[in-house]
């Protein structure tokens, strides 16, 4: 295995595109190194992108936020303004693994690992994030929900890298949240994950809503019916019931060592309700902690 640490995106894309054997991007490495260690992957080249300034920075302007793909969970958490704008996204990223893992793990890596249970992905999808992609043929953007096409499968072509994410500015009365269900309190992979972002008007009526579920299908889902359930309501009990039903209906889960189909379908509804309530509280300006 060879290791390269280019300082420009172009160089990184070129290295990846021109490698005949298996090449992998190294960001935080918290998935990649485990897969190498356990012989799941045997790349001949890893390209460490952390020496590229662009993928390591967080910036914002009137239109919104740019978060580099290789910004770590710990760095996201320390960014007070980002945390205030998109607390659900930051919290989701901070649920990945331990404090130690937070020191390394990135949202770019979380997405590109291609796991349906990735914690930050439903939060990004709910927030309406765009994935910024660079490749040998230039740059493009994709909605985050379109990046994963299946388990360990991405809509990226050879040589393409996720360089970062673009998030809109937080709506005036907007709020987001991410909750997951795990058997323990920490250190587990999500059995179900749920991200909700919503906005309300001055009267408290929901004007926009997006919900995404993780670990209930081959890839994180954007639940289209979520908006139908919430928009135009004050996100009251009956609206939350509809949202929960929409969440459960959207699930196409499997039985595995982490949970059963039935369990995932039921808990998706429970989490949808709870997550939306957190998002709503935040939209109302309350400062809340999800965990």
């Amino acid at each position: 295995m060879r290791y390269a640490a280019p300082e420009t995106i172009e160089k990184a894309c070129h290295l990846l595109a021109s490698e005949q054997g298996l090449a992998r991007v190294l960001a935080g490495g918290t998935d990649l190194l485990v897969q190498i260690k356990t012989d799941v992957l045997d790349p001949v080249l890893v390209v460490d992108i952390k020496h590229i300034a662009e993928v390591r920075s967080i910036t914002n302007d009137a239109k919104g936020w740019h978060i580099g793909a290789a910004v770590t969970g710990a760095e996201l958490k320390e960014h007070a303004a980002l945390r205030a704008a998109w607390p659900g996204v930051v919290e989701a990223a901070n649920l990945i693994g331990s404090t130690q893992v937070q020191g390394r793990a990135t949202m770019g890596g979380n997405l590109c690992n291609g796991s349906p249970a990735a914690d930050s992905v439903p939060a990004l999808i709910a927030a309406g994030a765009m994935a910024l992609i660079a490749g040998p043929n230039g740059r493009r953007e994709l909605p985050v929900e379109d990046v994963m096409t299946g388990v360990r499968k991405l809509a990226l072509t050879k040589g393409e890298i996720i360089t970062g994410f673009r998030l809109p500015a937080r709506p005036k009365h907007g709020g987001d949240a991410y909750l997951r269900f795990i058997p323990r309190t920490e250190m587990d992979i999500a059995v179900v994950g749920c991200g909700v972002a919503l906005a309300i008007d001055d009267k408290g009526v929901c004007t926009a809503a997006r919900m995404s579920l993780g670990a209930v299908a081959a890839r994180p889902l954007l639940v289209a019916d979520a908006a139908n359930a919430l928009v135009g309501t004050k996100v009251d009990a009956s609206a939350l019931d509809k949202l929960a039903a929409a969440a459960s209906a959207a699930c196409r889960p499997i039985d595995d060592k982490r949970g059963t189909k039935d369990f995932r379908i039921k808990v998706a509804g429970v989490l949808a309700r709870r997550t939306a309530q957190f998002a709503l509280d935040r939209a109302h300006g309350k400062t809340t902690q999800t965990h």
């Binding site: 490495g29 190194l33 356990t38 331990s98 130690q100 390394r104």
Partner: peptide
């Protein structure tokens, strides 16, 4: 060696990490 136990915890530039989840070259 999979980042699940923390026995290999070290700090890198003051940041807590699992040394099993970082390459030596890094």
């Amino acid at each position: 060696s999979t980042g699940d136990c923390g026995a290999c915890s070290v700090t890198v530039d003051g940041r807590l990490v699992c040394s099993c989840l970082m390459l030596g070259v890094e």
